[in-house]
Design a protein around this nucleic acid. Structure first.
Lengths: 135, 135
DNA sequence: AGTCAAACTGCATAAAGATGCGTTGGTCCA
DNA sequence: TGGACCAACGCATCTTTATGCAGTTTGACT
C-alpha cells in the first residue's frame, strides 16, 4: 500500500460527497485512478467504519444532516459550545446524547445553542469527529 | 394477498421503528407472522418506495431527524407543502431528494417551506410515510 | 535485533439485495 | 360482456455486499 488507510478513508468520503460512489466496485475503481489499490472487501470494511449508508443508487454519510445543522463548535475548557439554526438545538443535542460518547458528561440545549460538558479535554476530538463525520 | 400494499408498508415501517428489520428475508418472515405473505423481491421494492436505508445491521428510516424538523405537511394536488423551522427547509428538502422516492418529480425549498411536486396522487402517501410516523 | 500482539488486507465464497419477465386480478369503457 | 390497460407480485437470476481465514505489516516492548 502506498497510501494509508486514513488517506483512503478521506478519499472515499470525498467521493461520497461528490455523489460519485454508487457501488463498492466503483469506489475501488475510482481509488485506483488516484493510485490507491484496494479491493471491494476492503471498501466494504471502510464503509462500515465510516458509518456510510447506501440509499437508492449511492452511498452517503449517515449523519450528513447533523453535520449540516452544526454552524460552529467552540471549545472552552471543559465545555463545547455548539451553534445551530434556530429551533434545531434539541435535535442535534439528542443526536450527541445518542452517540453516548464516554467523554461527554451531558448536554443542555436551548433554541439554537448547545452546551456540552466534557469530562476531559480529549473528548473534544471525539465530539468534533461526530459532528464532522459519521456516527 | 389478503392485505394491501399500504398495510404492508405500514407494517414494514413499524418493524423498522422497532429496530427489528435486519434483512429483507427477516422482514418477509416478520410479515408472514402477521399474516402477510410477500417475497424478498417485493420487500426490496417496498424499501425502495419507502426510501429506507440499510446501515450496519439493519434498516432504518433515512429521515429520523428530518421527521422532527417537519412541522406540517399539506397536500394540494399535485403538490405537497411542507413547513419546517426557519433556515432548515433546504436540509429537509435535500433529505427528501436523497430518499429518491419514485413518485416525487422534484422539490424547491425556501427558508422554512418546501414545495414538492408529485408525479401522481399516490406519491403523497409515500411522502407522508417518509415524513410522519408509521402512518 | 527479536518477539509478540494487534491491525490491515486480499482471496474465495456466502449472504443479501435488485431486476427482467411473465402472470394475475382489478378497473374502465365501449 | 369483452377487451385493453395497469399496478402488484412471484420466480429465477444477476449484481452487490459481507465475512471467515490466512498471510503480511506495524508497533510496542524487551
Amino acid at each position: 500500500m502506498t497510501a494509508t488507510k486514513a488517506e483512503r478513508h478521506s478519499a472515499i468520503l470525498e467521493l461520497v460527497t461528490h455523489g460519485s460512489a454508487h457501488t463498492q466496485h466503483a469506489i475501488a475503481a475510482a481509488l485506483a485512478r488516484r493510485g490507491m489499490r484496494a479491493t471491494q472487501a476492503t471498501i466494504s470494511r471502510d464503509i462500515q467504519e465510516l458509518g456510510l449508508v447506501r440509499s437508492g443508487s449511492g452511498y452517503r454519510s449517515s449523519s450528513g444532516l447533523v453535520r449540516e445543522l452544526v454552524l460552529s463548535v467552540e471549545f472552552i475548557d471543559p465545555m463545547a459550545v455548539i451553534r445551530t439554526p434556530p429551533g434545531t438545538a434539541n435535535l442535534v443535542a439528542r443526536r450527541i446524547d445518542e452517540a453516548a460518547l464516554p467523554g461527554i458528561a451531558g448536554t443542555v440545549a436551548g433554541d439554537d445553542t448547545i452546551i456540552a460538558v466534557l469530562r476531559k479535554r480529549s473528548a473534544g476530538r471525539a465530539l468534533k469527529e461526530l459532528l464532522a463525520n459519521a456516527g
